[in-house]
Design a protein around this nucleic acid. Structure first.
Length: 897
RNA sequence: GGACUCAUAGCUCAGUUGGCUAGAGCGCCUCAUUGACGUUGAGGAGGUCGUAGGUUCGAAUCCUACUGAGUCCACCA
C-alpha cells in the first residue's frame, strides 16, 4: 500500500546538500549496507553472495578524483547487485601504506629541521600512526560523502590486530614452506627513505647524463658514475674482443684519488664491445651488472667494497678524499680530480634511464644488502594459469596480457623494508644469519618491516577473517570483482593472485584453488583538461568534496561512472559536471510533474489495451530496451556461478558489454531526457486531457518514473532515494527495493517504430515551419498523405499541440501548388504555404525531390550490382529492396504534389 | 630494446561480430517562452573517420606499412 501521507512537496530545484547526509545516515541506520545474510534468516542465506572489497586508499592523504571514480563504479555495481537480490558485501578499508606514510611524516619532520633518527623509532611510529589515523578519518568521511554503500561494521585497516595476525601467520606459513628466504643480494636502495625497494617501486626515468671517458691504467673507459671508481674491484672486457685480449688475466695499475691501485682484467660476456670503448670497470657492491659478474667470477671480480653508505654518503672505505661526501658531491670532486690529473679524456652527453624511488623520487642506489625474499618461480605459474584457464578475466581484456607479461618477467620479490612503520617481520635472526620464527637465546628480533604490498596481497582474504575459517570467509571468498585503476595491476592485482597461490587459499565451498576474484575491472586515470595526471606538485588536483558541495554527489558519480569506457583515461571537465547536475535536476522535475499529475498507481496490468496510443506503446518498448541495456552492462554470468537459490540468473539481451557502465549511462540519459521528458511527457500533457487516454497515461507515467528511479539508483543514489521516499511516499527504501522488473511483453519493436513515425511527423512539420520562418506562436495547417491513416489520426491531438497545427488532415488528395512537402517513411507531410512566395515552396519541394531521387538511385545501383546481390546476406539484400520500394513510393508522392 | 593504447565535428568522446545518408554531449548560430524543469524547449550549421596500400559485393570497423600523440615494462657501463 502506498502511504500518500508521507509524500512531501518537492521544491522546484533539487538541492543535494539538503538531503545527502540525512539520506546516507538513514541508509546506514537501517543496516542497508550490510549483507542480507547478516539477518540470519534462511531466505537471506539462500541468496547468492556478491562481494567487492574496496581497494583500501592509502592513509597518506585525503582522497582525490581517482578514488572518486573508483567509488562511483564500485558502488554502482554493488547497488545493482543488492537490488537484484544478491547477498551483497562491499567491504571498506584503508591501507597504512608503510613507506608512503612514513615518507609523509619524514617530510613534515624535515620541515621542522629534524629526521626520524632524532625522534627514535618508537616516537616516530607513534607520530606516524597518529598522522595515519587522522587521514583515515578524513578519508572515511569522504567515502561517505560519495554515497558509498559499504558495510562500515566490517571496516578494515591494514594495521588492525586481526590483519596484523593474518600477516604474521602468512609470513610464517610461507617461511615454513620454503617460499620465504633471507640473504645478501643486490637490491634497490633509496637513500632518502633509507630502505630497500622492490623492483616495481623503482621508476625508470629517461634523463640526460654525462658519460665520462677516463684514462684507466692502459685503457680508456666510459662511465656515468666516476665516484664509484674507489669501489672498483676489477676491469672487464668482452672475451672475444681482440683489442684487449692480451690484457685478460693480467693486472694493471690504476691511479686513484687515494693513490695507485692494482686491479685485475677479466673477460665477461656482459661487456658490449660496441659500447664506449668496450672496457668496463667493475664495482660489484654498487652495480647490478657488476654484481652479476662478481657472482659468476667471485675470485676475479671480488670482493665487493661498500663505498656508498645507506645514507647515500661515501663511506670510510671510499678513502679519505671522499669519505662523508654525498654521492653527487663525490662525483663532482672525482671529476675535478680527473681533470686535474689529465685523466679525463672527454665528456659525452648520454641519455640513459635512471631508477628513482616512487615515493621520494631520489635516485636509487643499487647495493648489496641482506633482505627477505619471496620465491616466485613456482607460484607465478599458477597465477598465470588463472588467466589461461579463464578463471580470472580482465576488463578490458588487454590488461590480461599486461598481467601475464609482468608475471613472466618477475624475479623474487623483496618483501622486507627498513621503514619504521608497518608490519614487523615476525622472525628472529642470530649472529650467523640463521632464522627462527620464535624467540630463542642468541636470536634477535628482526628490525625490518614488511613491504606494504605484502599485507595488501592478503587483502581479499585477510579482510574475511583468514586464516580463521570465519563465516564471512566461507561465504564471500573468492570475491567477485576487483575494481581499481590500471596503474596498480603490478603492485596489487598480481600480488593478490600470487599470495592466494602461495598460501593456497581455497574456495571453502568447492575446495578449489581459484583467483581471489573472477574479474579485475580496471578504470582509467582521471586527468586534467590538458591530459596531465593530477599531482600535488602541479596543483591541478580536484577535491571530490568540493565538487560534491558544488554539484552534489550524484552529479559527480554520474559524471565519473558514465563518461569513460573501461580502461580509458578520463579528462576531468567541470562543464560535464554541470551537465550531470542538470541531469539530476531534470530527473527531479520529471518526478515533480509525474507525481503532481498521477495517483499512486503504477500497475501496468490495469492498462486498457484498446485505448493505448502509439506513444504509450512506444515509451514502454523503449523503457524495456533501456532496462535491458542497463542489465546487460551490470550482468556478468560469473556472478551467478555460485551456490544460492536467488536471484535467478538473468540473461539480458546483450545490448551492452558487461561492465560498460558508460554505455548504459548514455542509454539511460537518452531515455530519460529525450524519450521520456521531451516526448512522452509533452504528449502526456495532451493525453491527460483526453478522457479516453488519461487513465492509461497516468499509469504509464507512474510506472516509467518508478522504473527509471530504480535503474538510475546505482548511479545517482541520493536523488532517486529522495524522490522515492519524499515524492512517491514509499515506505521501503529504494536502496533495498527490488530491481525494476520490466516485462518482456513490452519488447515490441513495431511499437517503437510507430511512435517514432509520429515523432518524425512532428519534427518534419517543425522543420518546415522553421525553414519558412513561420512565427513560432502561429498555427499552421498540415496534411499527412498516407494509405494507413489510423496511426496519424490517433495521435492527431499530440501532433497538433507539439507542432502547433490548427487543422490536420489525414488521407489522400493533399493540396497542390503553394506547398512544402517532406517524406516520413512511406507517408508524406504537406504544409500549405499561403502567404509565402511560391518560389520558396517550389525550391523546397525541389530539394526534397532531389534528395529522394538520389536515395533511389543509390539503392538501385546497389541492387544492380550482381556481386552484392549474390554475396551479401539475404536479409541485407531484402532490407535494401524494402528501402528502395519505400523510397520510390515516397518519391512518387512528392512528385505528384 | 620490448609491449600496449589512441588518432572520427571547434572541444570531449560513442560507433558492439564489416551492412541505411557516420552519432551524442558541450560549444556555436537562429528562434521560443508564465506553471515539471532556464540547471528549459524547438530548429540549424559543422566530419574526404591521421596518411598510403591491401582484403571484400561492401571498410570508420579487418590486414600491412607509415606519420603523429601517449602509457607501461626493460640491469647496457
Amino acid at each position: 500500500m502506498e502511504h500518500v501521507s508521507q509524500q512531501k512537496e518537492l521544491p522546484k530545484t533539487y538541492d543535494p546538500t539538503a538531503h545527502e547526509d540525512a539520506v546516507y545516515a538513514a541508509w546506514e541506520r537501517s543496516d542497508a549496507f550490510k549483507p542480507a545474510s547478516d539477518s540470519g534468516k534462511q531466505a537471506d542465506k539462500d541468496r547468492r553472495p556478491y562481494s567487492i572489497i574496496m581497494p583500501p586508499p592509502n592513509v597518506t592523504d585525503r582522497l582525490h578524483s581517482g578514488h572518486a571514480i573508483m567509488l562511483a563504479l564500485e558502488d554502482a555495481l554493488v547497488r545493482y547487485h543488492r537490488k537484484r537480490g544478491f547477498d551483497t558485501l562491499y567491504l571498506p578499508g584503508t591501507d597504512h601504506a608503510a613507506i608512503a606514510t612514513a615518507a609523509q611524516v619524514d617530510k613534515r619532520l624535515a620541515e621542522e629541521g629534524k629526521t626520524r633518527h632524532d625522534l627514535g623509532r618508537k616516537e616516530f611510529e607513534k607520530r606516524t600512526l597518529a598522522f595515519a589515523k587522522e587521514n583515515k578519518k578524513i578519508i572515511e568521511n569522504q567515502v561517505r560523502a560519495m554515497g558509498t554503500s559499504c558495510d562500515w561494521t566490517r571496516n578494515a585497516f591494514t594495521l588492525d590486530p586481526e590483519k596484523k595476525a593474518a600477516v604474521e601467520e602468512a609470513f610464517k606459513r610461507l617461511y615454513k614452506k620454503g617460499l620465504i628466504y633471507r640473504g645478501s643480494y643486490m637490491v634497490n636502495w633509496c637513500p632518502t627513505c633509507r630502505t630497500v625497494l622492490s623492483d616495481d617501486e623503482v621508476e625508470h626515468k629517461e634523463q640526460e647524463g654525462v658519460l665520462y671517458y677516463m684514462k684507466y691504467g692502459p685503457f680508456t673507459l666510459g662511465t656515468t658514475r666516476p665516484e664509484t671508481k674507489v669501489g672498483d674491484t676489477a676491469v672487464a672486457v668482452h672475451p672475444q674482443d681482440k683489442r684487449y685480449a692480451k690484457w685478460v688475466g693480467k693486472e694493471i695499475e690504476v691511479k686513484t684519488i687515494n693513490g695507485p691501485r692494482t686491479l685485475r682484467v677479466l673477460a665477461d660476456e656482459m661487456v658490449d664491445p660496441e659500447f664506449g670503448t668496450g672496457v668496463v670497470k667493475i664495482t660489484p657492491f654498487h652495480d647490478k651488472n657488476d654484481y652479476a659478474v662478481y657472482e659468476r667470477r667471485p675470485e676475479e671480480a671480488g670482493p665487493p667494497v661498500e663505498v656508498i653508505g645507506e645514507d647515500g654518503k661515501m663511506t670510510v672505505a671510499a678513502g679519505k678524499a671522499l669519505a662523508g661526501l654525498d654521492r653527487f658531491a663525490a662525483r663532482k670532486k672525482m671529476v675535478d680530480w680527473l681533470k686535474r690529473e689529465k685523466l679525463l679524456v672527454k665528456e659525452e652527453v648520454h641519455k640513459h634511464s635512471v631508477g628513482r624511488c616512487y615515493r621520494s623520487d631520489d635516485v636509487i642506489e643499487p647495493r648489496i644488502s641482506e633482505q627477505w625474499f619471496l620465491k616466485v618461480a613456482d607460484i607465478k605459474k599458477q597465477a598465470a594459469k588463472f588467466v589461461a584457464d579463464g578463471d580470472l578475466k580482465f576488463v578490458p581484456e588487454r590488461f590480461g596480457k599486461t598481467y601475464l607479461d609482468w608475471l613472466e618477467k618477475l624475479h623474487d620479490w623483496c618483501i622486507s623494508r627498513q621503514v619504521w612503520f608497518g608490519h614487523p617481520v615476525p622472525a628472529y635472526v642470530n649472529a650467523k644469519g640463521e632464522v627462527s620464527l620464535t624467540a630463542k637465546p642468541g636470536y634477535k628480533k628482526s628490525q625490518d618491516t614488511l613491504d606494504t604490498w605484502f599485507s595488501s596481497g592478503l587483502w581479499p582474504f585477510s579482510t574475511m577473517g583468514w586464516p580463521k575459517r570465519t563465516s564471512d570467509f566461507k561465504r564471500f571468498f573468492p570475491n567477485d570483482v576487483l575494481e581499481t585503476g590500471y596503474d596498480i595491476i603490478f603492485f596489487w592485482i598480481t600480488r593478490m593472485a600470487l599470495m592466494t597461490v602461495a598460501l593456497d587459499v581455497r574456495d571453502e565451498k568447492t575446495g578449489d584453488l581459484k583467483p581471489p576474484f573472477h574479474t579485475a575491472y580496471l578504470h582509467g586515470l582521471v586527468r586534467d583538461q590538458r591530459g596531465r595526471k593530477f599531482s600535488k606538485s602541479l596543483g591541478n588536483g580536484v577535491d571530490p568534496l568540493e565538487m560534491i558541495g558544488k554539484y552534489g554527489a550524484d552529479a559527480l558519480r554520474w559524471m565519473l561512472a558514465t563518461s569513460a569506457s573501461p580502461g580509458n583515461d578520463l579528462k576531468f571537465d567541470e562543464q560535464r559536471l554541470v551537465k550531470s547536475r542538470n541531469f539530476t535536476n531534470k530527473l527531479w522535475n520529471i518526478s515533480r510533474y509525474v507525481i503532481e499529475r498521477t495517483d499512486g498507481d503504477a500497475d501496468l496490468a490495469k492498462l486498457d489495451p484498446d485505448t493505448l496510443t502509439s506513444l504509450d506503446r512506444g515509451i514502454l518498448h523503449k523503457l524495456y530496451r533501456t532496462a535491458q541495456t542497463v542489465d546487460a552492462a551490470f550482468t556478468d554470468p560469473a556472478t551467478y556461478d555460485k551456490p544460492g537459490k536467488t536471484p535467478e540468473p538473468v540473461t539480458p539481451k546483450r545490448l551492452a558489454k558487461p561492465y560498460d557502465l558508460g554505455f548504459a549511462g548514455n542509454a539511460l540519459y537518452e531515455f530519460v531526457w529525450s524519450d521520456f521528458a521531451d516526448w512522452y511527457l509533452e504528449a502526456a500533457k495532451v493525453q491527460l486531457r483526453n478522457p479516453e487516454a488519461a487513465a492509461n497515461t497516468k499509469l504509464i507515467l507512474r510506472y516509467v518514473l518508478e522504473t527509471i528511479l530504480g535503474l538510475l539508483h546505482p548511479f545517482m543514489p541520493f536523488v532517486t532515494e529522495v524522490v522515492w521516499r519524499d515524492g512517491l511516499g514509499k515506505k521501503n527504501a529504494l536502496i533495498t527495493s527490488p530491481w525494476p522488473a520490466v516485462h518482456e511483453d513490452l519488447d515490441q519493436p513495431e511499437d517503437g517504430e510507430r511512435s517514432d513515425r509520429v515523432r518524425e511527423v512532428i519534427e518534419t512539420i517543425r522543420r518546415i515551419r522553421a525553414q519558412h520562418k513561420t512565427p513560432a506562436a502561429s498555427f499552421v495547417q498540415a496534411y499527412v498523405v498516407t494509405d494507413e491513416p489510423a496511426w496519424v489520426v490517433e495521435s492527431g491531438d499530440v501532433i497538433n499541440k507539439l507542432a502547433r497545427v490548427s487543422i490536420l488532415r489525414v488521407g489522400q488528395n493533399p493540396p497542390t501548388g503553394d506547398v512544402a512537402s517532406a517524406a516520413v517513411g512511406d507517408a508524406t507531410v504537406v504544409l500549405p504555404l499561403a502567404g509565402l512566395g511560391s518560389d520558396v515552396a517550389a525550391a523546397h519541394l525541389q530539394r526534397e525531390v532531389e534528395a529522394k531521387r538520389m536515395e533511389v538511385e543509390r539503392l538501385k545501383g546497389r541492387l544492380a550490382n550482381e556481386d552484392y546481390v549474390q554475396n551479401a546476406p539475404e536479409h541485407v539484400v531484402a532490407e535494401t529492396k524494402a528501402q528502395l520500394a519505400e523510397a520510390e513510393a515516397a518519391l512518387a508522392k512528392l512528385e505528384a504534389s
